[in-house]
Nucleic acid binder design. Structure first.
Lengths: 340, 340
DNA sequence: TTTAGCACTCGGAACCAATGAGTGCTAACA
DNA sequence: TGTTAGCACTCATTGGTTCCGAGTGCTAAA
């Protein structure tokens, strides 16, 4: 168990290292107003804290920096919940004040705010599109061989797919087909659409007209879901400003990872609910071993869930950032609640 | 005017510097099989070439590197049109062989190929969406206060806008409204839609029902065009692998520029037709002063034009890259020709 | 006109000493 | 017994020096 003095010293070190990215020395700590011990005493405590694994030295005669365990302890026990500055409050209120009516616009804007306010990289995982429910389907012929199917879901999300059509299809037939599709698919989750097509609608269409066959095949192929939840990323270049990432190789691996989307998406998808922090190696990717990730969830109505995340160096301004992420996720949820 | 020998030496230097990023010395050149002069002779020629501004030294006793003027001369007069390697050919053929039916997919894939094959960053400017013509408009109510308008254009592009609706609107009324819109707007360029709405349709709708007013206002606002042509970027992280960009600040300014989209888009939009190269300071942006940009156009059918570009260091593999860009733009144009 | 030879330049690597920030340990002190 | 002053020690950093080598420019000879 840590003594009060150790807690105090640990907190000072983490706070200071987060600010300066420089290892913290005993003399420096003892000069702080809030601290009243001599450098020697502090050195003793620091040695103890290091032994316990909360601190580490870069080399034998450097000051101490927090270890990952140190950050973890700091986040779990020493975080003083900060209040937002008026600037932050204003920026958020302003952005959510405007009636931006598109889901994507809200999310994009949120990503922007988050990265601007923190100087880290924000990543927002959109909700699973394929769990939203079909509101309307429309097919518009483009040329004699092609048509585009437009799916509107209950969240106002629009998916579209171009597909081939046999030449022979007539406008009236097409209309019939669309009517059937609408009748049968309204309210169905997008993810279930392909199955429904196979199970019910195929035979139904067959009864009505022979040459729907081909068109249907293509449509079905076009609607096979790719199941990729979209990532909205803000402040990609912010990483470049962190002193711990002056090494090009590190940057490259992080950036490629964000670019790839796949791994990050799955990471966010499987993250636990509520505010979560992953510090350094707590996340499974080597590329992110010097990064921390803070995640929170937001909700669309009742069930639909998305995740917003903030990616920065392990030396992250946890207290400020945690409240910011929390606040923002709340605002998003609230905004969406009004909609659905 | 340059002598043959000077041409030869200049070519060797540029070729070699492009390959190695190291200044080229006289001794090294004289050892090349294709060169039969002593280092001293070559030194004389190099001094002349430097005087003429085609070469420059990093410091007094370094070898020579091409100046921007040198690259320009190289591109204009010394480029030996290279043929694609079989690997390149295969990759391209393979990608365009698949019937990807979405415009965006083709473009995205093209950007991917281009950046993969070159290890530079590819940027493709989509055609002006707002010059495509409306094929169909559809309005789907989402809740009692909101609806989404979906616009399908002749190119298969789909735009959608969420907008507020007054509560009172009835399904039959909405249908009437959509019918009028379709009737009046079919074939109209997207960019002209807002104006048409104001000029013709507003009064028309007014005759039909009083409370369309509000809905119409919102719809009109929603359709006000944002007029941004989309950028498709491939291989953003490729810049990080170029040795001339090991300086973080340089990378940051380039990356922010790409991220911004605005400047790059306008640059590409105003670029001349055909294959163009901009070397170093030939482009107007300080952030890109150490970059070269190669642009080519592609066409959708007859009028619609987009631009594809490749962004790399001034020390670019011009000959390979130029043919690649050319080839790819041709493939894109051809693919699209089949569609429209 | 070309080339061999030579003096010269400059960046980069290696080495060294000095500096200073920081530590650990011990002994004295309250 | 906990705290602190003192001191020896460590190590990264900085600046200075030297040396090396790649490359040049110039001159004189072929």
């Amino acid at each position: 168990m840590l003594t009060n003095r150790q807690l105090q010293i640990l907190k000072v070190i983490v706070d200071d290292f987060i600010l300066t990215a420089q290892p913290v020395g005993s003399r420096y700590i003892s000069k702080k107003e809030t601290v009243d011990y001599s450098p020697a005493t502090i050195r003793n405590e620091m040695a103890d804290l290091e032994e316990m694994g909360f601190l580490e030295k870069l080399h034998s005669s450097s000051g101490r920096a927090p270890s990952e365990k140190g950050y973890r302890f700091y986040v779990d026990h020493l975080l003083s919940p900060s209040t937002l500055s008026s600037r932050e409050k204003n920026l958020i209120r302003e952005s959510f004040g405007k009636k931006t009516l598109e889901f994507e616009q809200v999310v994009e804007k949120s990503a922007g705010i988050l990265s601007d306010l923190t100087n880290y990289t924000s990543i927002i995982l959109g909700p699973e599109v394929f769990e939203t429910r079909l509101k309307q389907i429309q097919i518009t012929p483009l040329s004699h061989e092609k048509a585009v199917a437009v799916l509107v879901t209950n969240t106002g999300h629009v998916e579209h797919r171009v597909f081939s059509t046999p030449v022979e299809i007539k406008a009236t037939d097409l209309e019939k087909m669309v009517n059937i599709l609408n009748e049968r698919l309204k309210g169905v989750a997008l993810i279930e659409v392909p199955e429904r097509l196979n199970r019910e609608i195929f035979s139904l269409l067959k009864e009505h007209a022979e040459h729907f066959n081909d068109a249907f095949m293509y449509l079905r192929a076009a609607l096979a879901n790719d199941n990729s939840a979209k990532l909205y990323v803000g402040g990609k270049t912010n990483i470049l400003m962190q002193p711990e990432f002056k090494d090009i190789d590190r940057i490259r691996s992080i950036m490629s990872m964000i670019e790839e989307e796949k791994d990050i998406a799955s990471l966010l998808k499987t993250s636990d609910k509520g505010i979560q922090t992953m510090i350094g190696h707590e996340n499974p990717f080597i590329a992110l071993q010097h990064c921390s990730i803070i995640t929170a969830n937001y909700y669309l109505g009742n069930q639909q869930v998305g995740t917003l995340a903030l990616l920065g160096p392990t030396r992250m301004e946890y207290n400020r950032v945690v409240t910011l992420v929390e606040e923002l996720s709340r605002h998003m949820t609230e905004t969406f609640r009004e909609w659905y």
